[in-house]
Simulated scan of single mutants.
Amino acid sequence: MESVTPQDTYAHIVGAFAFAHSWWDVDSVEGAVHPIDDVADDWKVSGFADDPYGEEGAFEYAFELTHADVMRALRICADKDQRQAKYVSELCSKESLRMLLGNADGCDFDAKRADEVVQVAVFGKVHYG
């Protein structure tokens, strides 16, 4: 079993266009350039999200996302018995578990599933989607 690298989390989550949805407004990406072949261990994405508890379109919820944040979210998404994973899709749960088990190359996160992981990392659960 291979460990999940920062390259893996960046490529499969950020690289899957998780931030393409209207509730994300990314200000900066540090430690990564396109193409995504050379990603720093300390990559970070920061910006604002549409606050799920506030006015729609206000973008008042500041966030930072790192490899460690994605790893924590993958663990939550992979465990469907956790209350936090309540709104995580079955496919996201399956792909999260596959990645955690060291099969990053076999993962198939699309933008929707990657967005679920980011929402869990940023908000603690899936609000949108």
Rank of each mutant, 00 (worst) to 15 (best):
M1D: 12
M1S: 12
S3E: 15
V4E: 03
P6I: 14
P6V: 13
Q7N: 13
D8P: 05
D8Y: 08
H12Q: 08
I13R: 04
V14W: 01
F17M: 07
F17L: 09
F17R: 12
F17Y: 09
A18C: 14
H21S: 07
H21D: 06
H21E: 12
S22E: 08
W23L: 12
W24K: 01
V26H: 11
S28Q: 14
A32E: 13
A32M: 15
H34A: 14
P35F: 13
I36R: 01
D38G: 05
V39Y: 03
D41C: 11
D41Q: 15
D42Q: 12
D42E: 10
K44I: 04
K44W: 02
S46F: 08
F48W: 08
D50N: 15
D50G: 14
P52D: 04
G54I: 06
E55M: 09
G57D: 02
G57T: 00
A58S: 15
E60Q: 00
Y61P: 02
A62F: 01
F63E: 02
L65I: 11
T66R: 14
H67R: 06
A68G: 05
A68W: 03
V70K: 01
V70L: 02
M71G: 04
R72N: 15
R72H: 15
L74Y: 00
R75T: 10
I76S: 01
I76D: 10
I76M: 03
A78W: 06
A78Y: 00
D79W: 09
D79M: 13
D79Q: 14
D81E: 14
D81I: 07
D81T: 12
D81F: 06
R83L: 14
Q84E: 13
Y87E: 11
S89L: 05
E90P: 02
L91G: 05
C92A: 13
S93C: 14
K94D: 06
K94T: 07
R98F: 06
R98C: 12
M99C: 08
M99I: 08
N103G: 11
A104Y: 10
G106Q: 13
G106L: 12
G106W: 00
C107T: 11
D108K: 11
F109S: 07
F109V: 11
D110M: 14
A111K: 11
A111H: 11
R113N: 00
R113W: 06
R113D: 01
E116W: 03
V118Y: 04
Q119K: 03
A121F: 08
A121S: 14
V122S: 10
V122P: 06
F123P: 04
G124P: 10
Y128V: 04
